[in-house]
């Protein structure tokens, strides 16, 4: 069994940083052309895209001026719906007659699916990784405030000791501006911002981009804070790998769009002296649970 980098799992992107899992994703993908590859990978793009876009903000309050420096860790979990477990795949290459079958996606059952062809010949599709949720944890640094504006950065880079997987990097940044500063009597703290991230794995095997923009509002009740947000996700992944089915070898490059759309977040935070902990739920194309802790001013 190949070794596993447990440190990376604890720090960031639990699924993609799992070296054995990621290497196997690559090998499974190499058996699929674009059409089947899209169906196989889409639940990963949808789930991780929606998860990665969470945790950027907790509340709408941004001071107009003054030092704000927060280091935080956010964990997001996207339960995998049953519909994501299978997709319609089509047989490829030397097999007759061509057939379409419901087979495992990347998060589906570990079992391969076989179809019977002419004369009793067999064609098999790969199994999935049998996952009920996709988990993500990211480190984040927030710096402000300049005229009610703060900046957020996410960064992680690692070179895994795995020739199949290669280098892994996460870069994310965002800007948020206070809206409520212009309306002194506004009943809640209100801000608006946008946040962009890029995850790159291996030799361009997967280049994942997410964009979230929206408004956030919050109201404090002593140390407690009730907050919510309304925004839009825009996620896509560029996939690049060598398709090899023993008959032909070809470099494939294609794009998978995520389940983009409106997201509504509601959550509860607790402000301590130099720390804040929170938990929230986001409802959109899928439900995401988030929690985290931040330390600083």
């Amino acid at each position: 069994m190949k070794s596993i980098n447990s440190f990376s799992i604890l720090i960031i992107i639990a699924f993609l940083a799992t070296t054995t899992g990621s290497a196997q994703i690559k090998e499974n993908l190499e058996r699929y052309s674009e059409e089947n590859g899209t169906g196989y990978l889409k639940p990963l793009v949808d789930g991780l895209g929606a998860s990665m876009n969470r945790g950027w903000t907790q509340g709408g309050n941004i001071p107009v001026l003054g030092l704000r420096l927060r280091l935080s860790v956010h964990a997001m979990l996207a339960p995998v719906p049953d519909d994501d477990k299978t997709f319609a795949a089509t047989t490829q290459g030397q097999f007759s007659p061509q057939q379409t079958a419901q087979v495992s996606t990347i998060v589906g059952s570990e079992k391969s699916t076989s179809v019977t062809g002419q004369g009793g010949t067999i064609y098999s599709f790969p199994g999935g990784f049998d996952m009920n949720s996709l988990g993500v944890a990211v480190p984040q640094l927030t710096v402000g405030s300049l005229f009610g504006t703060e900046f957020t950065l996410r960064f992680f880079k690692a070179d895994f000791d795995n020739k199949d997987l290669g280098e892994f990097s996460l870069t994310g940044y965002g800007v948020r501006h206070s809206i409520s500063q212009y309306f002194p009597l506004f009943p809640v703290a209100l801000s608006a911002g946008f946040f962009y991230q890029n995850i790159s794995i291996g030799d361009n095997l997967l280049d994942f981009s997410t964009l979230y923009y929206g408004v956030q509002a919050s109201k404090k009740f002593g140390a407690l804070m009730l907050y919510g947000g309304l925004g839009i996700d825009n996620t896509h992944a560029d996939i690049s790998y060598t398709f090899d089915n023993a008959l032909e070898t070809a470099t494939l490059n294609y794009e998978i769009k995520g389940d983009n759309g409106v997201q509504i977040t509601t959550g509860l935070g607790l402000n301590l002296l130099f720390a804040r902990i929170y938990g929230d739920v986001t409802f959109g194309q899928r439900t995401i649970l988030s929690t985290g802790i931040s330390l600083g001013l």
Binding site: I4, S6, I9, L10, A14, T18, G21, Q24, E27, N28, R31, A75, M76, L77, G93, E110, K111, S112, S124, F125, P126, G127, G128, F129, D130, S133, G135, V136, A137, N245, A246, L247, I277, G279, L289, T291, G292, I293
Partner: peptide, 22 residues
């Protein structure tokens, strides 16, 4: 909730994935 997340989202399990080779 934070601890539960840490335990669930970050826990790893072994999977025996069935893979076809042509």
């Amino acid at each position: 909730g934070l601890i539960w997340f840490s335990l669930t989202a970050m826990k790893c399990e072994t999977r025996n994935v069935q893979v076809p080779v042509l």
